[in-house]
Design a protein around this nucleic acid. Structure first.
Lengths: 147, 147
DNA sequence: ACGCTATTTGCAATCGGGTTGCAAATAGGG
DNA sequence: CCCTATTTGCAACCCGATTGCAAATAGCGT
């Protein structure tokens, strides 16, 4: 009975419940948004989501409002990977410590890959601590398909 | 006689010559742009530059066109550090191998710091190579002033 | 199951950063 | 100093994102 393709379950009932738990009403537009993002393996752009929802008859203003609202409510994370495009990904609600993970952005094709754990060498760690506390690492370059 | 505050000299004559060497005409707007960026220790935003030039009587369209043209000509580097804002920094023409350096972006105040050399641990290096070739590293977090 | 109210939606207008078309100004080689 | 290709200023425009408002609706209490 439980076949969850992604970390946070994307079953209709579970998704709707999570939305309500976040203090929002589980409307069709929001449910579809969260399902879509939970089933995606990498962050989706503002317009990826908007295009999909528009096809379902949802207005783009509603799509954008919901992305922002759900990000504020902690259901989504809004990221910007350096190509001037907003991306959203579902926060893993089953891990209370889900504070984000590193990303790799291909500067040629724009593809984004989520990395599990990227660390700096001790020396680089030290160098960066002089400036501040690093909470996020983003790598850019050319993905294997584009080399 | 030579007091150069930054890596590439920002003296008027030198700047104008570099612009011509890049195949562009050394207009006042361009000269002012390059001097400004060479004297800055960190990348400046699109609008930082535009605001400054506007004060000097330059139109914003011209300011933007010049930033793009000079970036295409190899005098500037255009970067996007993940806050939806374009930034430009002067390329160090005295080092032919100046292919960029890592940056740290404070997500609170937006301040950018240039880092000289950041490396990943061997394991992370390996992990990232599975995805592609990393050419750029960006760190985000809270700078010491904002903690 | 039903009403009621606060929330959410659709639509259209609006916003704002950035870009473009075009005629006038000008850099800089000859 | 001239002449032409490049660059500029200006205004119009583009487009992704946001906002105001009236109509629709989620989901609470009953």
């Amino acid at each position: 009975m439980s076949k969850s393709p992604s970390l946070s379950p994307s079953g209709l009932d579970v998704v709707q419940n999570d939305i309500r738990l976040a203090g929002l009403r589980a409307t069709p537009a929001r449910t579809a948004t969260l399902v879509m993002l939970r089933e995606s393996s990498s962050p989706l752009t503002h317009s990826d989501v908007a295009k999909h929802l528009t096809k379902l008859g949802v207005d783009k203003a509603t799509a954008f409002r919901n992305l922002n609202d759900m990000a504020d409510a902690g259901l989504l994370r809004r990221t910007e990977l350096g190509d001037h495009v907003w991306r959203f990904e579902a926060v893993d609600t089953s891990h209370s410590d889900d504070s984000g993970h590193p990303h790799f952005l291909c500067v040629d094709c724009g593809t984004v890959t989520c990395l599990s754990d990227v660390r700096l060498t001790a020396g680089s760690q030290r160098q960066s601590e002089v400036v501040g506390e690093v909470t996020e690492i983003l790598l850019r370059g050319h993905c294997n398909d584009c080399r």
